[in-house]
């Protein structure tokens, strides 16, 4: 597979990079590790006029640092470096698990970046195909057409799937992203970063760059966990995944956040499903019930796409959720 021609820029500074992007807008794309962009460009799904390489900004945007109870992670931080960071392993074990699930070890080292994982495009069985393959079908919503081949007749929007592992766990951890653009910087919660619309899944303007992620470090007596179901143990996207983050006070749940992944165009935060756990010291049955509720609440959103059908997702979504809740709680209690 050959790439179509484009211009290549490798700016030396952040200001230079932002100025170039502001000038070129949506005709230019950022290049970090390239593991999401290049396959899409080879398939003609991304057709950049200019590729702006971020390689000279690695020193500036790869730091993992702690400040005022918050962990700041640069967008160009390499996945393995974040996953193996002592603070992440110690205080945010679920994030370490989620990042270790991405691709394979050799892609996590020095190639894949945390920012790239968060900005990865949503995927679809009918979209992520070669140009020749797609030529037999009418353009879908994601290609500015008027049909969704995955959803079938009567579906009025794109039903592609966010299969990022990092996004699910960071959503459950209530992380924020920091964006820089022509007019300065802004920060927004991950909940707002992912639009839930498959056509335009990321709420970034054409002039913006993801600078990094900020996660509040949970208090003592907290635990997080990430679980995924996939066909293979490596080089595979999840078919359903779940993240849970729990804090305890005097043995009772004081905060709990969960998210389901790989079932919708954004990580699916399910706040009401786990609200009954608040103030409780839940046993296994209570966690299983919460997981079932999460699956039911997710029901209307679940997609029939990417190697797992709707019925499978309906039945299986509670499984990783229950496992993630159990392990997060065990970690919060200090029993695992």
């Amino acid at each position: 597979m050959r790439l179509a021609p484009f211009e290549y820029l490798a700016p030396e500074s952040l200001n230079e990079a932002l100025a170039a992007k502001a000038n070129l807008g949506a005709k230019a794309v950022w290049l970090a590790g390239g593991t999401d962009l290049l396959p899409r460009a080879k398939q003609g799904l991304a057709q950049p006029q200019t590729v702006i390489s971020l390689k000279h900004l690695c020193a500036e945007l790869s730091a993992v640092s702690q400040d005022d109870g918050k962990l700041q992670i640069g967008a160009l931080a390499v996945i393995a470096d974040v996953a193996n960071h002592p603070t992440v392993q110690g205080r945010l074990p679920g994030l370490s698990e989620a990042l270790h699930a991405i691709g394979a070890l050799t892609l996590q080292q020095r190639v894949g970046t945390l920012g790239g994982n968060l900005c990865a495009d949503t995927r679809c069985l009918y979209y992520n195909q070669s140009q020749e393959w797609r030529a037999g079908l009418a353009p879908c919503f994601k290609l500015a057409g008027e049909v969704c081949h995955a959803g079938g007749e009567g579906v009025e929007r794109c039903r592609s799937v966010n299969q990022s592992d990092g996004a699910v766990m960071l959503s459950a951890l209530d992380a924020r992203v920091l964006l820089a653009g022509e007019k300065g910087q802004r920060s927004l919660p991950l909940e707002d970063f992912f639009t839930g619309q498959g056509e335009t899944p990321i709420a970034m303007e054409a002039d913006e760059l993801l600078l990094g992620v900020e996660v509040a470090l949970p208090p003592d007596g907290s635990g997080s966990a990430y679980e995924r179901l996939a066909l293979r143990g490596a080089i595979d996207y999840p078919l359903a995944s779940a993240a849970a983050a729990i804090s305890l006070e005097d043995g009772a749940v004081s905060t709990v956040r969960v998210a389901l992944g790989a079932v919708f165009a954004a990580p699916l935060l399910l706040k009401d499903a786990v609200a009954p756990l608040l103030g409780q010291a839940p046993d296994e049955a209570a966690l299983a019930q919460a997981a079932q509720r999460a699956g039911r609440h997710a029901g209307p959103f679940l997609v029939d796409n990417v190697r797992a059908d709707l019925q499978w997702r309906k039945e299986m979504a509670p499984v990783p959720m229950r496992r993630a809740l159990e392990r997060a709680l065990a970690r919060a209690r200090g029993t695992s």
């Binding site: 290549y8 290049l38 396959p39 394979a104 892609l107 080292q109």
Partner: peptide, 23 residues
């Protein structure tokens, strides 16, 4: 040609990279 199989792996500055996904 899309980073899945690993057959094109080379080391760039000592780290493995998919040469098919590296400009």
């Amino acid at each position: 040609g899309e980073g899945v199989c690993g057959a094109c792996t080379v080391l760039v500055d000592g780290a493995p990279r998919r040469a098919c996904l590296t400009l």
